[in-house]
Design a protein around this nucleic acid. Structure first.
Lengths: 125, 125
DNA sequence: ATTTGACTTCGAGTAAACTCTAACGAATAT
DNA sequence: ATATTCGTTAGAGTTTACTCGAAGTCAAAT
């Protein structure tokens, strides 16, 4: 049982963001007698999942789609599977690009270091 | 020597985007007698580099910063190196997150597949 | 001579994902 | 009893990176 700011702290997001996710119907918490939001373990788990998808560039709209399918029940498993596989492919492409760029950068960084070392030497002579 | 639409085609971006990059002082092409943009080999090379940084989530502002330093000349090599190293770290973090998420997803995908297979079996009985 | 097509500028418009503001209510602290 | 703290809402504002539209120029094709 968490308040909005507690769960925000736990997840490293702002309460504003959590209200936004609620408006987008991605995670709709319970309410207490005063109308305050109450997040439970399952909300926490779902939010953690959502944030992980977000960190890997899945757009909010697709996350909402997946959430809708999940809430619709068992007959949407095939659709959900397709969505996850699509995102898996997106991730694999990103891994590709990032790996290539990392190589390019470490080469460039190496050249820069050598250039700087050469300049330092010159100064000492 | 390329026109704006030629280089846009070569790089897979729109002429609009190239004009925007010029406004942001990331790549400023030459002009011909009619005032039309003329991109040369070096502009192409720089744009390809910029696009690769963009694909790995470097914000336009940082790309512009790097470009400025580059244009300022040799005495900015240390600053440029620092910038590249910072982005390299960002990439390594992304690789981490993506790898972890890819594992998470392939597990989830596996469960979904098994669940669907189980349902199919049931139907056959 | 005029139409076509590609270019130009400047400024406005768009989409995504927040992020903030203002005005209010309830519970706790002094 | 009052001040503070934390929550609420609806709606407006912000940032990033484009993306588009309108009005105009210029050279080549018909």
């Amino acid at each position: 049982m968490y308040t909005i700011s507690e769960i925000a702290d736990l997840l490293g997001v702002s309460p504003h963001t959590l209200r936004y996710y609620e408006k987008e119907k991605i995670v709709v918490p319970d309410r207490d007698a005063n109308g305050n939001r109450v997040y439970r373990k399952e909300h926490f788990t779902w939010l953690r999942f959502v944030i992980q998808l977000k960190q890997t560039q899945m757009p909010i709209a697709k996350i909402r789609k997946y959430t809708e399918l999940y809430l619709e029940g068992d007959h949407t498993t095939t659709a959900r599977l397709a969505l996850l596989e699509e995102h898996q492919r997106a991730i694999q492409e990103q891994l590709h690009t990032l790996t290539a760029t990392e190589k390019m950068l470490s080469d460039k960084i190496e050249s820069y270091k050598q250039y700087i070392a050469r300049m330092k030497n010159k100064q000492l002579t």
